[in-house]
């Protein structure tokens, strides 16, 4: 590992952060626009053309807003919680391949540059592990706020995430079972090689993943942690300014992450499996475009659902997670295992 490689890694990190932050900003914009359209409104349209600078304006506003720290909070944890949320949200992206690797010559050395921070052979597990850490941000924020609404919001979100994580994990294991690898690249390559995205082979797993992903990100209709009518603003009731913005960012980055994961695992990642049978491998910038398109599609789905479906009751949510999703995902896993075992003979 020489200096150049280190530099490349650093650059990747920078790019990821930058892209994600921008992505976050425009996801909010997208959401506002889409929801507005669905509600027969225009949405933001003042800042810049079509309101495209609105996210920047929001960012400036949040940054300069006063940070109010309530009395009685556990300051350390209070400060830590949003950072945890944010960091965890970004970290999951580290294993996401967004394009095929390219080779460049830097300083006389031929190097392969991957459009991916790191590829583990346990990448999927890593993602699961990181997403399971997302709970901490919420719980700690709720607890540190020294506010009952915040705490209950935090605990609720935590319970919700823990519950749905299980179904999600099992659903993803079905995918792993089909592919035979935990590596993201392997999964994408497998889909390309077979010429069809996994959503075709594992529709049930995809469905479960989609539902649990919404729950994991605390989006409507599973947005209990911030159920305004019951809990004011949930775990971030006591957060203002930039700290609140961090939670906000984390939520949207999480959305992007799970969308990216959905794209990678079920939709063929940065490839177009069916199309590439005829076109051959596409260049890297097309790959990125394909990936972005898929992510945006998934995000649109998120927003669409939010605009469409009303919030569930909390106990129904938990019951749904434990009594419906988990059994279905387990059954799916078992079925998959049997089929694979059968085919393997």
């Amino acid at each position: 590992m020489d200096a150049i490689e280190l530099g490349i890694v650093a650059l990747k990190c920078l790019v990821i952060v930058a892209v994600l932050l921008t992505g976050f900003a425009y996801t909010t914009f997208l959401e506002r626009k889409v929801i507005a359209r669905m509600q027969q409104r225009l949405g933001p349209n003042r800042a810049g053309p079509f309101g495209l600078l609105q996210p920047a304006a929001d960012g400036v506003k949040l940054i300069f807003k006063e940070n109010i720290t309530p009395v009685g909070v556990d300051r350390f944890v209070y400060f830590l919680a949003p950072i945890v949320s944010m960091v965890v949200a970004i970290m999951a992206f580290a294993v996401m391949p967004v394009a095929d690797p390219i080779t460049v010559t830097i300083g006389g050395q031929v190097r392969e540059i991957r459009f991916q921070l790191a590829d583990f052979n346990v990448a999927l597990l890593y993602v699961l592990g990181i997403t399971s850490l997302a709970v901490y941000g919420l719980v700690l924020a709720g607890w540190a706020s020294n506010n009952k609404f915040a705490l209950i919001g935090g605990l609720r979100s935590a319970a919700q995430m823990v519950s749905y994580e299980l179904a999600m994990g099992v659903a993803l294991v079905s995918v792993v079972l089909v592919v035979g690898s935990l590596s993201m690249n392997d999964i994408v390559d497998w889909q390309v090689a077979k010429g069809l995205p996994l959503i075709v082979l594992q529709p049930v797993a995809f469905g479960i993943y989609a539902i649990t992903a919404i729950a994991e990100t605390n989006r409507a209709p599973f947005d209990f942690p911030e159920a305004e009518q019951e809990l004011v603003a949930g775990y971030h009731t006591e957060y203002t300014g930039m700290r609140f913005a961090l939670f906000f960012m984390a939520e949207y980055i999480n959305m992007i992450t799970v969308s990216g994961l959905a794209a990678t695992l079920f939709l063929g990642g940065h490839h177009l499996p069916f199309v590439e049978r005829f076109t051959g491998n596409l260049p890297w910038f097309v790959d990125i475009g394909v990936f972005l398109a898929k992510v945006i599609l998934a995000l649109f789905l998120f927003i669409w659902i939010r605009a469409t479906i009303p919030r569930l009751r909390y106990d129904r949510l938990m019951a749904f997670g434990w009594k419906v999703l988990l059994p279905i995902s387990l059954a799916n896993l078992a079925l998959t295992a049997v089929v694979i075992a059968f085919l393997a003979r």
């Binding site: 699961l128 592990g129 850490l133 823990v162």
Partner: peptide, 10 residues
């Protein structure tokens, strides 16, 4: 990964 999921996550 298991450490992360089991210890940290659960």
């Amino acid at each position: 990964a298991a450490q992360l999921i089991v210890y940290a996550g659960a």
